[in-house]
Amino acid sequence: GGYEIPTRLRTLHNLVIQYAAQGRYEVAVPLCKQALEDLERTSGHRHPDVATMLNILALVYRDQNKYKEAAHLLNDALSIRESTLGRDHPAVAATLNNLAVLYGKRGKYKEAEPLCQRALEIREKVLGARHPDVAKQLNNLALLCQNQGNYDAVERYYRRALAIYEEQLGPDDVNVARTKNNLASCYLKQGKFTEAEVLYKEILTRAHVQEFGPVNGDHKPIWVHAEEREERSRSRLGDSMPYVEYGGWYRACRGSSPTVTTTLRNLGALYRRQGKMEAADTLEECVLRSW
C-alpha cells in the first residue's frame, strides 16, 4: 500500500505482544506510551507510524478487557489513517473492523454494524468481490447481524462467504467447514432443523472423504453409521450392539479440526431432539473417544 511499517516499530510491537501475552501489562503499557511520545515528537501526531503505535496500544487494552479505552485509541488511529493513507486503504478497513469487534465485545452490535459494512466495502473495492479477506469480513458482519436477530442478512452473508471460500480455497479448506457450521447455527436459531442437518452431514462427509477417500460400502461417513445403528435398534435387531470402531472414525477425529468435533456434537444434539437416541449416542461416543 505504499507505506511500510518501520523495523523499529515492528520490533517494539513484538516486544509488547510478548509482555502482554505474559500478562505483564504494567511493562507493556508504559513501553507503548513512551514510544508514542517519541513518535509524536519526531513525526507529529498525524503520522501513519503514530496510528500503528495507537493500534498496538489498543491491542494491549483489548487484552485487558478495557474496550472503551481501546476504542478511543482506534478512533484516533482511524482518523489519522484516513487522512494520511486515504479513505479506502486496507489499513483503514482493518481499523474499522477492529473498532467493530470492540463494539461487539461491549454488546453494541447496532453501532458495530455500519463500521463492519464500511470495512467490507473497502475490501471489495481494493481486493475484488471474491477475495478471501472479503469472506472474512462477511463472517464478522454475519455475526453482528445474528446478535441482532437479523437472520435473513446472516444467511445471505454466510452464503456469500461460503461461495468465496469454496471457489478460492477449495472445498476442503477449514474455512468452508467453519462457515457451514456457523450457517447451520443460524438455521437452528430459526428452527430450520432440516437445513442445519444437511450442512452438518456435508461437513462430516467431506471430512470422511478427506480422511478415507470416496464413500463406499466399507467406508461410510460417521452419520451414516449413526443412522444405521438407529435403524437397527428400532427394528430390535441390534439392541446391545457394542460401539465398534466405525471405520476408524474415532482415530480420524483425533487428528481433525475442532470444527468436525463441534459438528459431531451439534448433529448429535439434533438427533437427540428428533428422538434418535442411538444415532446421537454414536456421534457423542465418537467425540468422547477421540479425546
Partner: peptide, 20 residues
C-alpha cells in the same frame, strides 16, 4: 448444547492493522 453451537463464533480481530 446452545453453547456448543456457539463455541466457534467470535468476532475476528484483524492483525494486519499492524503491518501496513
Amino acid at each position: 448444547d446452545q453453547q456448543n453451537v456457539n463455541r466457534q463464533q467470535q468476532l475476528e480481530w484483524d492483525d494486519s492493522t499492524l503491518s501496513y
